[in-house]
Design a protein around this nucleic acid. Structure first.
Length: 595
RNA sequence: GGUCUCGUAGCUCAACUGGAUAGAGCAGCUGCCUUCUAAGCAGCAGGUUGCUGGUUCGAGUCCAGCCGGGAUCACCA
C-alpha cells in the first residue's frame, strides 16, 4: 500500500481511538527541512474534537502512532505541528516497491478519454515564440493525462481560410512573379509570411497615397486597391472560384510543408487535424434550433443573439443579419462535431491564449444552454502572453521571435557551450549534433514550461540560453551523470536485486529525502493534471535532480565497502535516472546517456 | 467606464490551495576537482510578499478599499 494512504489511515485510527470522534480532513504535509521528520500533521484543526491544546493533541497522536502504527519511528512536536519520523525500514520497502515496478509512473488505463487542442495557427505566417509556449503546453498536458491512464486525442484547428490568407494571396499574385518554395529555396510558411508582410507594406503605402490625395482615412482603408483585391479573393473563394481555390490550396500546401518541419523539430504531434474551411459553416443549424427552443432570440434585422446578462456577461451575436456565421457559431459547431467524432471523450481542453478568455466563457455557457452536459468538462487552458525584454512581440515592429530561428539558435548555443566545456571528445560528429539538439531544445522547453501557464512570462534570450541552474540541461546533466555510474557498476559486475535491498539497515538523510520525492511522483502528476500545469512536473524534476546531486556530492558511491549498501545505491541511482527521464519525457524533453 | 487578471530578493520564478523563521535559479562574494562527469556541491549576502484595513489559533494565499501593470468588453478571427 502507498505510504501516504497508510499513514493517513493510521492517523485516522489514532484520532478515532484517542478522541472518540471520526476525522474529517487530515492536514498532512512534508516536514520543513529545519525539523526532523518526513511528514507533518497540522494539529490545530483537531483541537476541536480532542478538547485539548495543540501540543497535547499532537503528542497524544504521536505516542499512539509510535506504539501502534509500525511505520513511525519517533516524533517531535513544535507548537501544533506533529513531525513524524518514518522508519528507514519503511522507506527501504517503499523504494523496493518502486524499484521492482517497471511501469512506475505510468498508471494503467482508467477507461477515460480526453481531447486536447493546441497550436491552431493561422496559415498566413510562420510559427513564433507564442506558438512554442502553446505547443509545448498542450503537448505536455496531453502527455501528463496519458501517464495517468487517460486516452488522449491531440487535435488542432487550422485557421486556413479568411481574409488573412487572402492578403498573402493578393500580394503574391501582384508581386510574386510565380515564386515558389522550390524556386526561392525558402521554407513554405516563410514564403507565404513574406507576402503577408508585403501586403501590409503596400497597403500602408496605398493608404498614405490616398490620404495625400484628400481621401479620409476610413475611406482610404477600404479603397486601397490591394485590399480590394484581397476582399475580392475572399468572395471568390466563398463562391468556390476554381482559380482562387487552386491558389489557396497551393499556398496553404506550402505553409503545411513548413509547419510540418517545425512541428517535427518541436517534437509535437496530432492525431487529427480540423480545418476551418471544413467547419466554418457548422453551428448554424444548432443556433437555429436554439432559436426555436427559445434559448436564443432574433432581432428585427434578422440577426440572432444570445442573452448572457443573467450570467453577468453581455449579449452576443451568433448569426449576422444576412444569416452568415460568426466565429462563435463555428466554434459551437466544431465542439459538437468533435464529440461526434470521439463519442467517448469526457471533455475538451482548449489551449488558447488568455486574450480569448471571454470567448470561451461564452462558448461553454452557450453549449450548456443548448443542453450538452459535457460543456462542464470543457476547459480553456488559458496561458499568459510571452513578453520580450523590449516589451510585447509585435509583428508590425518586427520584434516577433521566429520559432525555427529560435530552435536553431538554442541548438547552436548548446553546441558552442558543449565544445567550450570540452565534452565532445569521445563523441562522433553526428552525436554532437544530436546532443546539441537535445540540450538546446531541452533548455527551451524547460524555460517555457517551468512557469505557471496562467501567468504571463518574460522571455529573456540571454537567460533562456543558460544551461546552468534552474534549467532543462541541469536535469539532463544529472541524468547523464547517473547513467555513467550505472554503466560503471555494470562493468564492475555490480547488479542490484530486489532481495538484497532489504539487507540495508539505515539510510542517509539525502537518500530518505530523494525516496520521499520519488514516492510523491504520482501525487505531483495528479496535481499537474488537476491544474493543467506542466510547471508542476518541471519543478518536480528539478527538485529531484537537485536532491540527487546533494546525495551524489556527499557520498562517493564506489568507496562503499558494504556490498548491500553499494548495490542499494546503484539501484537508487537507477531509479532516480528513470524517474527523471519519465518526468522530462512528459514535457517533451529527451535526456542523454552522456553529456 | 464594466468584467477578469497579475503585483513576492537587483532580475526570472516557487511556495503542496489558510500553516512553522516566505524558498530556488541568475547576477555578486567565499570555499570544494589526484577518488563515480565541476553543465555540479557547500556557504555568505539579498524581503515591511504594491499600500491600508478586515476575517482567525494562524494570511503571500480569503474579503473590502485604494495604487500600479495587462487582457477583454466587434454583425473580426
Amino acid at each position: 500500500m502507498n505510504l501516504d494512504t497508510q499513514l493517513r489511515a493510521s492517523i485516522s485510527t489514532a484520532v478515532a481511538t484517542l478522541f472518540n470522534q471520526p476525522v474529517q480532513q487530515l492536514q498532512l504535509q512534508p516536514t520543513n527541512a529545519e525539523f526532523e521528520g518526513s511528514y507533518t500533521l497540522v494539529c490545530f484543526p483537531l483541537t476541536k474534537i480532542s478538547k485539548k491544546g495543540p501540543e497535547q493533541t499532537a503528542t497524544a497522536i504521536g505516542e499512539y502512532l509510535v506504539a501502534n502504527s509500525g511505520i513511525v519511528a519517533r516524533f517531535n512536536v513544535v507548537k501544533g505541528f506533529l513531525n513524524l519520523v518514518i522508519t528507514d525500514k519503511v522507506w527501504i520497502d517503499v523504494f523496493k516497491s518502486i524499484f521492482v515496478d517497471k511501469n512506475f509512473g505510468l498508471l494503467p488505463s482508467n477507461g477515460k478519454e480526453l481531447m486536447v487542442e493546441y497550436s491552431s495557427p493561422n496559415t498566413n505566417k510562420p510559427l513564433h515564440l507564442g506558438h512554442l509556449r502553446n505547443n509545448f503546453l498542450g503537448y505536455a498536458v496531453a502527455e501528463i493525462y496519458k501517464a495517468l491512464g487517460y486516452t488522449v486525442h491531440k487535435v488542432q484547428i487550422i485557421n486556413d481560410r479568411g481574409i488573412h490568407i487572402c492578403k498573402s494571396m493578393a500580394a503574391w499574385k501582384l508581386l510574386g512573379n510565380g515564386e515558389t518554395p522550390q524556386s526561392s529555396g525558402m521554407k513554405g510558411d516563410k514564403l507565404v509570411g513574406k507576402y503577408y508582410v508585403e501586403f501590409d507594406k503596400n497597403y500602408k503605402a496605398q493608404i498614405k497615397e490616398l490620404i495625400d490625395k484628400g481621401v479620409s482615412e476610413t475611406e482610404a482603408e477600404k479603397q486601397a486597391p490591394i485590399m480590394k483585391q484581397a476582399v475580392e479573393l475572399l468572395q471568390k473563394w466563398e463562391a468556390k472560384d476554381v482559380d482562387t481555390v487552386l491558389l489557396w490550396k497551393t499556398m496553404n500546401g506550402w505553409v503545411y510543408e513548413g509547419f510540418d518541419a517545425t512541428y517535427k523539430r518541436m517534437g509535437v504531434d496530432f492525431e487529427k487535424l480540423y480545418y476551418e474551411s471544413d467547419t466554418y459553416l457548422l453551428g448554424k443549424d444548432e443556433v437555429l434550433k436554439g432559436v426555436e427552443k427559445g434559448i436564443f432570440f432574433k432581432k428585427e434585422d434578422g440577426s440572432v443573439w444570445v442573452d448572457l446578462t443573467s450570467d453577468g456577461l453581455d449579449q452576443k451575436v451568433l448569426l449576422r443579419a444576412d444569416g452568415t456565421s460568426v466565429y462563435m457559431t463555428q466554434d459551437i459547431g466544431t465542439a459538437i462535431l468533435r464529440f461526434k467524432d470521439f463519442p467517448k471523450i469526457e471533455g475538451q481542453v482548449y489551449t488558447v491564449g488568455n486574450e480569448q478568455e471571454y470567448h470561451f466563457k461564452v462558448l461553454f455557457l452557450i453549449l450548456k444552454k443548448l443542453g450538452y452536459s459535457w460543456a462542464d468538462k470543457c476547459y480553456h487552458l488559458s496561458y499568459g502572453m510571452v513578453d520580450l525584454p523590449t516589451g510585447k512581440m509585435k509583428s508590425r515592429e518586427g520584434t516577433v521571435v521566429d520559432a525555427d530561428d529560435l530552435m536553431q539558435e538554442m541548438a547552436d548555443e548548446a553546441e558552442k557551450q558543449t565544445r567550450e566545456l570540452g565534452k565532445i571528445e569521445d563523441l562522433a560528429d553526428g552525436q554532437v549534433k544530436e546532443l546539441s539538439e537535445m540540450i538546446g531544445l531541452g533548455a527551451l522547453k524547460f524555460f517555457l514550461l517551468k512557469v505557471d501557464p496562467k501567468k504571463r512570462m518574460l522571455f529573456d534570450p540571454n537567460e533562456s540560453i543558460q544551461l546552468q541552474g534552474h534549467t532543462g540541461p541541469f536535469i539532463q546533466y544529472t541524468h547523464a551523470r547517473i547513467r555513467a555510474i550505472v554503466r560503471k557498476a555494470g562493468s564492475m559486475g555490480v547488479k542490484p536485486n530486489e532481495n538484497e535491498l532489504s539487507q540495508v539497515a539505515s539510510l542517509e538523510a539525502s537518500e530518505r529525502e530523494v525516496i520521499f520525492m520519488i514516492n510523491n511522483y504520482i501525487n505531483k502528476l495528479n496535481e499537474a493534471a488537476r491544474d493543467y500545469s506542466p510547471a508542476v512536473v518541471a519543478n518536480f524534476a528539478f527538485d529531484l535532480a537537485k536532491g540527487y546531486n546533494q546525495f551524489y556530492q556527499s557520498i562517493p558511491i564506489f568507496n562503499e565497502s558494504d556490498q548491500a549498501k553499494l548495490k542499494f545505491r546503484i539501484a537508487f541511482s537507477e531509479v532516480v535516472a528513470d524517474v527523471l527521464k519519465k518526468s522530462m519525457k512528459l514535457l517533451g524533453i529527451e535526456v542523454p546517456e552522456k553529456m
